[in-house]
């Protein structure tokens, strides 16, 4: 109020501010986009899920919750759900634990740890589809590098992606390989913010490396750990690209994720009503899990 350079504009702004909060103008673009391109489509797919919505037909029969009842009795859906949950659990835990282990090893900045950080981070910049294509080929029993190297050291390699027992673990390993560098970098940055004297104090108290890690490092990393876990969980539950390019869901549905199944029903067989029902069940599951995680996440907003 000390300057009076724009005498007319000033009171006008304040008057309108009383009537209308300009904060709404700031959030408007994002909210409109979210409403049009995310929220409304979700509602619409809910509407489709209540119909026998075959693509190509001009009218769609209303069937109530029949699609959901069918889904409940669909063993292939339950299988897909199991695959998705197992993948999500293993990959998010694996990614965070390995990321943490690597980050604590590469904490100090030397030329070789910088080099290694770059190496670990590199797969993160490739797209999942490209990663899937490369790994499918790497694991090829005839011309793949993995089997050739294993054979060279006298190990008889299994049929990674053709085996019903190994296909899912293999896909999970590739999932971890792809994103462990991301987790590592996030955790590393967090670690480097921990004040050095905390470690020195702990050391003077007689804490060994492990106790220092548990009592000093881990608590400081809590926000970063939560962040990486949430991201990994959401990505895991939406698993599609990797499976699509590596196994197409096979062998015998052993790697078929929920989104893969949804895709098959909706986009290959054109049963949009049923696919929408699958989509909605998945949406509710993800929302439930993330509600729990958001509650935990909110922890870090209090500062």
């Amino acid at each position: 109020m000390t300057t009076n350079r724009i005498p007319t504009a000033q009171p006008a702004r304040r008057r309108s501010a009383r009537r209308f909060n300009s904060a709404y103008l700031f959030i408007a673009p994002s909210l409109v986009l979210i409403a049009v391109f995310i929220a409304e489509p979700i509602v619409q797919s809910g509407w489709m899920s209540l119909h026998d919505w075959m693509v190509g037909e001009s009218s769609h029969r209303f069937v109530g919750f029949a699609n959901y009842t069918r889904l409940f009795h669909d063993s292939r859906f339950w299988n897909a759900l199991r695959v998705t949950v197992v993948y999500t659990l293993v990959v998010s835990v694996g990614q965070v634990v390995l990321g943490l282990a690597i980050a604590s090893r590469l904490r100090r900045t030397t030329w070789y740890s910088t080099l290694l950080r770059t190496a670990y981070f590199f797969p993160f910049i490739a797209s999942l589809v490209v990663v899937g294509i490369i790994w499918k080929f790497l694991l090829d029993p005839q011309v793949g590098l993995v089997d050739a190297w294993l054979a060279a050291v006298g190990v008889s390699p299994p049929a990674w992606l053709q085996s019903t027992a190994l296909a899912l673990p293999t896909v999970m390993a590739v999932g971890i390989w792809k994103n462990v560098g991301f987790t590592m970098i996030v955790l590393l940055a967090s670690m480097q913010q921990v004040p050095r004297d905390l470690y020195e104090a702990a050391a003077l108290d007689g804490a060994g490396a492990w106790r220092q890690f548990r009592n000093v490092t881990l608590p400081a990393l809590r926000p970063a750990l939560l962040f990486t876990t949430v991201i990994a969980t959401v990505n895991g539950l939406q698993l599609f690209d990797l499976v699509f390019s590596m196994t197409s869901g096979g062998p015998i549905f052993h790697t078929e994720s929920v989104v893969m199944y949804l895709y098959q029903k909706g986009f290959v067989e054109f049963q949009m009503g049923y696919a929408s029902a699958i989509a909605w069940v998945l949406f509710v599951i993800i929302l439930g899990i993330s509600a729990v995680q958001l509650r935990v996440l909110r922890y870090r907003d209090v500062d």
Binding site: D140, P141, Q142, V143, A159, L161, Q162, S163, G250, P251
Partner: peptide
């Protein structure tokens, strides 16, 4: 024959003299 080959795998197997 190996189990579970995709078409491309089967071609590769034959082309690589296996």
């Amino acid at each position: 024959s190996p189990v579970g080959q995709a078409g491309a795998d089967a071609d590769t197997l034959f082309a690589s003299k296996k």
